[in-house]
Simulated scan of single mutants.
Amino acid sequence: MQNQNKRKIEVFTAGCSVCEPMVEMVKSMACSSCEVIIYNLSQPCDMKECLEKLQEYGIKALPAIAVNGSLLSCCQNKEISMEALKNAGIGQAA
């Protein structure tokens, strides 16, 4: 019955110096009701579970965090788009 009260926190990282402080922050904040799972995408994962979860959650940038199966709003819509690049002047003569 205790598992029903657990909060499942999935952390997606590239194992880099940008991701590691976020991973450590999550670990330090986790309580006894938290189950923290780290997916280091710089290493192969068993049965491709981490790659399936990337697609399922729509993760476009790392680091990213999902709690109880939902990608946090701070981790959404970070995709580099052609529109954003054009708006920055990329591909346009000065």
Rank of each mutant, 00 (worst) to 15 (best):
M47S: 15
Y39Q: 10
N77Q: 12
N5M: 03
E52H: 05
L72V: 08
Q2S: 09
G91S: 00
G89T: 10
G69F: 10
N68R: 01
A61P: 03
V11C: 05
S70N: 11
M82I: 14
S42P: 01
E56C: 03
L72W: 09
Q4N: 12
E10H: 07
A61I: 02
M22V: 15
M47H: 14
A64E: 03
F12W: 05
M25A: 14
M47G: 09
A88C: 09
S17K: 09
F12I: 11
I9M: 09
K60E: 11
M22H: 13
M25T: 11
M82E: 14
S70V: 13
M47N: 15
V23Q: 02
E49A: 09
A61Y: 07
A66W: 04
M29W: 02
E10P: 06
R7A: 02
A94Y: 02
K60L: 07
G69A: 07
Q76Y: 03
K78D: 04
N3M: 08
E83A: 12
G89H: 04
S73V: 06
V18P: 00
S73Y: 05
G89L: 08
I38P: 04
K8Q: 15
R7L: 03
E56I: 04
I38Y: 06
N77R: 07
E83C: 00
G15R: 11
G69H: 05
A84F: 03
L51G: 00
I37F: 03
E20K: 12
Q2A: 11
A94K: 05
R7N: 04
S81K: 13
V36R: 05
V26R: 09
K48F: 08
I37A: 09
E56Q: 12
M82K: 13
A61W: 04
S81N: 08
C19I: 10
Y39P: 06
A66K: 03
Q2L: 10
T13N: 05
K53C: 10
G91F: 00
P44Y: 00
E79V: 02
K6N: 06
M47D: 15
E35A: 06
Q76M: 12
N3A: 09
I90W: 12
I9V: 15
L54P: 00
K78L: 12
A66T: 04
S70F: 01
A93T: 14
E79R: 03
N5I: 05
C75N: 14
K27S: 05
G69I: 08
V26Y: 11
L85R: 05
G58L: 04
V26K: 10
R7V: 08
A84G: 15
Y39M: 08
K27E: 15
G91K: 00
E24I: 01
K86N: 08
M22R: 13
R7T: 13
L62K: 03
